[in-house]
């Protein structure tokens, strides 16, 4: 397994972890009927999910740059 693949897998793991955490926060905020539940979702839930999506998109860019590099070297 190449180093770049390990890096890609790590990014996917980080992205998944952020998304799972964010979604758990979202579930808690939906079950908790309180004004603070909106704050919990808006500031913590959305940030975690958004960060997860961002890391996933970075991993896609990582793959794209890797395939461009290998194409140039051939």
């Amino acid at each position: 397994m190449r180093l770049s693949e390990v890096g890609m897998e790590r990014l996917l793991r980080i992205s998944s972890a952020f998304i799972i955490l964010g979604l758990v926060v979202e579930i808690i905020s939906l079950l908790w009927y309180h004004p603070l539940s909106f704050v919990l979702f808006a500031f913590i839930g959305i940030s975690l999910i958004g960060l997860g999506i961002l890391v996933y998109l970075v991993s896609l860019a990582f793959v794209a740059s890797r395939s461009t590099d290998s194409h140039n070297s051939t």
């Binding site: 998944s16 979202e26 905020s29 539940s37 979702f41 808006a42 959305i46 997860g52």
Partner: peptide, 24 residues
């Protein structure tokens, strides 16, 4: 992976925001 790590989470944000707005 695209569905599970990008599309669905984005829809969850939109749905959650909508639900919280209606609830408030």
């Amino acid at each position: 992976a695209f569905i599970g790590l990008c599309a669905l989470p984005f829809l969850c944000i939109v749905g959650g925001m909508n639900t919280h707005m209606q609830r408030s």
